[in-house]
């Protein structure tokens, strides 16, 4: 049974901007920091409405993370904003020591993640960020799938005490989750119930999993589709319950195979419920310049790749 409705195409980063703007009005402890990408991160509304709580740090991401950690001392809830590459790889040690190890209530909000950043090329297209962040003890890692869910996640993480990595993207993509749906950190969302295979997807690949599911239905394959918006902590119960029923798995993500969602699910299943598994992800490669659609096709992250992976994994049951 389908549990989604396509409405319009919107970018997930605007969901973040809308969520942050709402938080600015409802929670006076929320502050925001940006490293010269206010427009790209859609933080303009917050900056305009709450200039005293918005900190433009310039092109100095390490300093931004440190200042954010310091702002928590005094009860503030800082949201940092820059591209995913500069939110993670560039400042890994600052996040590790000043935020994660220090247990600070910083929300690291990262746009332009993955290949769909497009033409800027591999220097900006990080495909390792989920892995980097999920390895940090105590770090919550969230990769919502559309505008509505990104907005809801932004609002939800302000209520959670502790460090969070929130990943979203640049392009407009289908907006299909319920605008009123409450975002529960660590709670997987079943989008389609099925019995033949489970497709676990995250971020932009969730809609592609839905498209794949429709193509599979036409072939007589009944796919269960689950949106894993929280990579860490992983909803292990939801994964195991579904795989006990379907007995085979495809994972889909805009990330390296190493360190991503598929890696987390493979670890869990290897321990608890060994099952045939295929991963739709980037295979140990950097990206390159191109349009988002061209790149997703070239690197094998389209619905057709999910369909192929499903056919393969069902054959391994």
């Amino acid at each position: 049974m389908k549990k989604y409705t396509f409405t319009e195409k919107k970018d997930t980063r605007s969901g973040f901007g809308a969520g942050l703007s709402q938080l600015g009005k409802t929670n006076e402890n929320v502050v925001a920091l940006c490293a010269d990408l206010t427009g790209s991160l859609k933080m303009d509304a917050f900056a305009k409405d709450h200039p005293e709580r918005f900190f433009q740090v310039g092109i100095a991401e390490a300093n931004m993370i440190g200042i954010a950690a310091g702002l928590t001392i005094g009860g503030k809830i800082p949201f940092t904003g820059t591209f995913a590459n500069f939110s993670t790889g560039r400042v890994y040690d600052q996040i590790r020591q000043s935020v994660a190890y220090s247990g600070k209530n910083v929300k690291i909000c990262a746009s332009h993640a993955g290949l769909t950043l497009g033409e800027d090329g591999a220097t900006h297209q990080i495909l390792e960020d989920l892995g980097l962040m999920k390895m940090l003890p105590g770090m919550v890692v969230i990769n919502p799938c559309d505008y509505n869910q990104t907005k809801a996640a932004t609002i939800a993480i302000a209520e959670y005490e502790g460090p969070v990595y929130l990943r979203f993207g640049r392009p407009t993509v289908p907006n299909f989750t319920d605008a009123e749906q409450k975002f529960e950190i660590g709670k997987a969302v079943i989008l389609n119930e099925g019995k033949d295979v489970t497709i676990f997807a995250t971020g932009h690949l969730v809609w592609k999993a839905i498209e794949a599911g429709e193509q599979l239905a036409a072939l007589g394959i009944d796919a269960e589709i689950i949106n894993i918006h929280t990579i860490k902590p992983l909803d292990e119960q939801a994964v195991l319950t579904s795989v006990r029923k379907t007995r085979c798995v495809v994972t889909a993500e805009e990330h390296q195979m190493n360190g991503g969602l598929g890696d987390s699910i493979a670890q869990l299943l290897a321990r608890e419920l060994p099952s045939p598994l295929e991963m739709v992800a980037v295979h140990d490669s950097f990206g390159e310049s191109g349009t988002p659609d061209q790149l997703m096709t070239k690197y094998g992250l389209d619905a057709v790749n999910i369909v192929d992976a499903v056919k393969k994994v069902i054959g391994r049951k």
């Binding site: 900190f55 390490a62 300093n63 993370i65 950690a69 310091g70 590790r96």
Partner: peptide
């Protein structure tokens, strides 16, 4: 704050100073 990996404390202190101003 944790410290040891060098160079991070001034940023943290600035953040805490900004929080003091807000408060």
């Amino acid at each position: 704050i944790a410290s040891g990996s060098l160079g991070q404390g001034l940023s943290v202190a600035i953040g805490a100073a900004l929080a003091k101003k807000l408060n």
